[in-house]
Every structure is written in C-alpha cells, then in structure tokens.
Simulated scan of single mutants.
Amino acid sequence: MRQDDGDRPGAERAEGGAPDTGGAAGDGSEDGFRRSAAHLIDEALGFLFPAALRAAADIGVADHLADGPRAPAELAAATGTDADGLHRVLRLLATRGVVREDDRGRFALTETGQALRGDVPYSARTAVLMLTDRTMWRPAGELTRCLTDGTSAFEALFGMPFFDHFAQDERTAAVFHVGMAAMSDPENALIAAAYDFPKAGTVVDVAGGHGGLLLEVLRRNPGLDGVLFDRAHVLAGHRLGAAPEVAGRWTTAEGDFFEAVPPGDVHVLKRITHDWDDDRCVTFLGHCRRALRPDGRVLVVDAVVPAGNAPHQSKALDLMMMASLAGRERTEEDFAELFRRAGLRLSRVLPTPTVLSVVEAVAA
C-alpha cells in the first residue's frame, strides 16, 4: 500500500529523508494533522516490505529470474508456491525497485535486486534471511518491553540469551553465522583497503567468524600473519583454507574473548562491540589491551552513530541490538569512554566506503 512519493499527501522530504513538516509543531491545521496521520499510517505498514523480501529470499525466486522476466505462474511452478500469492509479494517488491513488472504482467529482477540471487558474488540472500529471522523479528515487535523493563526482549521470548540460542545446534547457528558472513562479505575488501596496516606482525581477528575480513587483510598485506580467534563451532566454517594465496600465514585459535585473547600486533573486532553492553565490552577490550605487543593497536570496526536527524543504518541497527541483544550502536564519544575504561586511548576514527568506520585505539 506504499504509494509513490509524488502521490502521497505530505510527501515532500527534507534533506534527512523525513517528511518536511515546516517546523517542529507543523501548522496546527486540520489538513496538517490529516497529512500527519496519512504519513504515520503509511510508515506503520512499512514492516510488510521486509516480510515480502524475506518470503522472496526464502523461496529463492530471484534465482529463477536470472535469465529474464517470467510470469508469476511460471515462477510459482518453479518455486512450488501459490501463483496469486507470489504475484502479490512481487508487486510490493516492485514498489521498492527490487523487481519490475512489465505490461505483460511478467516480473524482472532489477539491478537493485540482483543480490537477492543466491548464485552471485556478494549475495545478500542469507543476510536477508538472518535479519528477518524470527529471532530478530519477534523481539523487534516487543520494543515497548525494552522501554518499560530496560532489558532485551529476547530472553523472555526464547528462554535464553541471544548467543546461547544460536549456539544450541548447527542449523540454528548457521542462520546467524552464514547470514553475518553474507552481510560482511561486501564490506571486507573495502575495510581492509581503508586502513594502513603495519608491514609485518600478527593480526588477531577477535570473534572473526568465518574469517572474511582477515582473509582480505592478509591478501592486501603479504608481510602479515593472522590468527582467527572464535568459538570452535564457528571456526568449523572458516574459509581461510580455501585461499591458497595466504597459505602458511594464518592459524586458528579457539577460545572465549571474555576470558583471554591471543597476543598480536593488531587486534581487530568487526561488528562485535555493538553486541554487548559497556561492562562486557570493557572486559574483552581489556583482554585485547593486555595481549597487545608494544606499539600495537586495537581496531574496532563498527558503525559510529552520527549526530543529527539524517538517516544512518546505525540508528536502525541500534534498535535491533536493544531488542535482541544486550548491546548498542555507539557514538565516537561512547567509544572513547569504553577505551578509557579498558586502558586504551582512542587515537582516530577512519571512515570507510561502507557504513562502518575503523575506530583505532592504542595503549593509554
């Protein structure tokens, strides 16, 4: 039911993407309140777009559009789904430019929608499935609980903390770890290129998952060795061994970063600090500080929440962290305080071409 901006009342947009109301209080007229109501109702229906996107990802419909447009009946037969229902899902996705319907009622995948395929580089399909999984979706619907109780909604809904749930079996863990790898893969080469790593030494990728970022760092820096550090069930899916160009320059290490981390010259933590509250972040950042070799650095690779009203992915992810985990997205000032408490000092923040920045710390 989302209309084109040009057709929707009050659709004029200010620079930040929010409706231009002409001031904090608006004009106070009946028409102004009517426009406000229309806008808010339209926004409240917005959750149906990720629901449609998940359904399309789940059945793999994009893979059947790789060779050109097809009718809903053909796509339904290929995916084992209902033709009418599939048409309605695709029609909504077309309003956001994921697919396009032609005058013959056939749907084609757009350039924007290409990464919904599972057979392309940087496929986002498993990332979409992770981000819209019930473990993210259900707690998001309970944000009021977070406001009234001051805690994550996850444990009340699932009976255990977030990471305990994802560690309980291989299938459940795959949703998270494979999805996170898919979310990270398009970023890794860009992040590795954005930072001037030392010419020699050891990079420890702390809670590095399947090793995508460490692989890109080692590819670009032939004088470096790497350690991929994570839990055993995560390391089982690592990809370092499939890259002959870094052979002999990496090892894996099993462990828990709340207890200790391996020694190294650079400790990298990508999308880790946002999962945890301040006290727990200080614990593992303190372990990194103690494991740093002389002149070493700790690199927190995470979103840095900007000031102001402009849209930024960190502001949406922050609510996911609040609902499902115990963490938060942080400002530059927040990171400086975490580092101070861990015996580190924030030295600089380097933007990257992605939504993430490299927040560098050295020993205080």
Rank of each mutant, 00 (worst) to 15 (best):
A193N: 09
A193V: 02
A194N: 08
Y195V: 15
D196T: 15
D196M: 01
D196W: 00
D196I: 03
D196V: 12
F197R: 02
F197E: 03
P198H: 05
P198R: 04
P198E: 08
P198F: 00
P198G: 12
K199A: 15
K199S: 15
A200Y: 02
A200M: 06
A200C: 06
A200V: 12
G201F: 04
G201H: 08
G201Y: 05
T202C: 12
V203Y: 02
V203W: 01
V203D: 02
V203N: 07
V203L: 06
V203P: 03
V204N: 02
V204L: 07
V204G: 07
D205Y: 05
V206F: 05
V206T: 05
V206P: 01
V206K: 01
V206S: 03
A207D: 09
A207L: 09
A207T: 10
G208C: 10
G209Y: 11
G209N: 13
H210G: 00
H210K: 14
H210C: 00
H210L: 14
G211F: 12
G211R: 10
G211I: 09
G212F: 10
G212K: 07
G212W: 12
G212D: 13
G212Q: 13
L213G: 08
L213A: 05
L213E: 03
L214P: 06
L214I: 10
L214N: 06
L215S: 13
L215K: 13
L215A: 15
E216Q: 14
E216V: 01
V217M: 00
V217L: 03
L218S: 06
L218R: 00
L218Q: 04
R219D: 06
R219H: 13
R219I: 03
R220F: 00
R220M: 12
N221P: 11
N221M: 07
N221L: 05
N221Q: 10
P222M: 11
P222R: 14
P222H: 07
G223N: 10
G223P: 11
G223I: 04
L224M: 11
L224G: 05
L224W: 03
D225A: 12
D225R: 15
G226M: 08
V227D: 04
L228N: 03
F229R: 06
F229L: 09
F229K: 07
F229W: 07
F229V: 07
F229D: 02
D230L: 11
D230A: 09
D230T: 05
R231Q: 13
R231L: 15
R231P: 00
R231G: 00
A232S: 15
A232M: 03
A232L: 09
A232D: 13
H233L: 11
H233M: 11
H233I: 02
V234A: 04
V234P: 01
V234N: 02
V234G: 02
V234R: 05
L235I: 08
L235E: 06
